[in-house]
């Protein structure tokens, strides 16, 4: 049996780094890990919070996955989610009804898509790298959010920069509501979209061409796939999904938008998609794992471990997993 020592070393090194980071901030690592588990999946209230987090993570994870499948890195899910949530909250505030909720979801999707569109266009027609353009769009999106939240959309009655809360009529309904556990429809919506996308990707001609463009763009060109269109559309669809994530966060859970609303879900989406590897269905468990880590380390603040641990954990998980995938791919040749 030939052990992949190179990768075992990498895994151990990553683990050691996490351990060190925890020790450096004065925590006892086994204790910290135990707390993380308990506070993310240990009780009904913890489950509630974890599943709340999972919704945007699944949406942004799937968003990044779609683009990645076409060979594009969408680093801009963060901005797309934020812009989507703002459009969504604006519509929901204007039309406080179930119909308004539907429109608000559509608004979120459209806004997210529009926020990704320039990156797709610049990549397809000007050759500008999508990593740079999506990062720039993130910054512009954040500035836009900052302005809207401080000015036009600000709820003047409150001290913090936040919009007003939407009317209960526009909430996404709960499927389970037995406090301390409750769950609304949004997670189910995103999960269904994921399953539908997986089927489409595997069984449809367009899905085949999308994967082909990501795998071998030259062969795709020779096979009659419209390279530029696929690039623009997949980037736009990616933005739409991130925007949907923002809309669902607003309508299902947060009911308003405030500064720092997105909290890095867009960036985590990159990790979720990476961890899922080549399988769209795997985005679901991957998003769940990220939600557990995210919820777990957020709640560590209650035992005096500052925020930041999830960044370390997720960053290292992405790296270690990518190393395993790279190994698998080189093994094929």
């Amino acid at each position: 049996m030939h052990l992949p020592w190179k990768h075992i070393w990498l895994t151990l090194a990553a683990f050691a780094l996490i351990w060190l980071a925890l020790v450096a901030v004065g925590a006892y690592p086994p204790e910290a890990f135990r707390e993380m588990i308990i506070r993310s999946v240990g009780k009904p209230a913890a489950w509630r919070e974890t599943l709340f987090q999972m919704t945007p993570l699944l949406a942004t994870g799937l968003a990044v996955f779609v683009a990645l499948r076409a060979g594009l890195f969408n680093i801009g899910a963060e901005g797309q989610l934020m812009v989507g949530s703002l459009a969504s909250v604006a519509v929901a505030l204007a039309i406080p009804s179930a119909f308004g909720m539907i429109l608000a979801i559509v608004a979120g999707i459209v806004a997210g898509a529009l926020w990704a569109l320039p990156a797709g266009l610049i990549k397809a027609y000007r050759g500008g790298h999508e990593v740079i353009s999506t990062i720039m769009l993130n910054s512009i999106g954040m500035a836009l959010a900052g302005w809207l939240l401080a000015g036009p959309m600000r709820n003047k009655l409150q001290e913090s920069t936040t919009t007003a809360a939407i009317d209960e009529a526009a909430y996404i309904p709960h499927v389970v509501d037995q406090m301390p556990f409750r769950m609304n429809l949004s997670l189910i919506i995103v999960t269904l979209i994921t399953v539908g996308f997986a089927y489409w990707l595997k069984r449809s001609v367009k899905g085949y061409e999308l994967s082909l463009v990501g795998k071998n763009p030259i062969a795709a060109k020779f096979s009659g796939a419209a390279l530029k269109k696929v690039t623009v559309w997949s980037m736009t669809a990616s933005g739409a999904l991130a925007g949907l994530g923002g809309a669902l966060m607003v309508l299902g859970d947060e009911h308003r938008v405030y500064m720092g609303f997105s909290g890095g879900y867009g960036f985590d989406g990159l990790g979720v998609a990476m961890l899922a590897g080549g399988s769209p269905i795997a985005v679901v468990p991957s998003a769940f794992l990220f939600a557990v880590i995210s919820q777990g380390s957020d709640s560590l603040a209650q035992i005096q471990i500052p925020k930041g641990l999830n960044g370390v954990l997720l960053g290292l998980i992405i790296i270690v997993f990518a190393a395993y995938r790279a190994k698998k791919e080189t093994h094929h040749d």
Partner: peptide
């Protein structure tokens, strides 16, 4: 991916230290 992973880890680690 390596770059993004490193950025996330370092952002997390420095945030962790800054507060501690």
């Amino acid at each position: 991916i390596s770059g993004m992973g490193l950025n996330a880890s370092i952002l997390g680690a420095t945030t962790l230290f800054a507060k501690t």
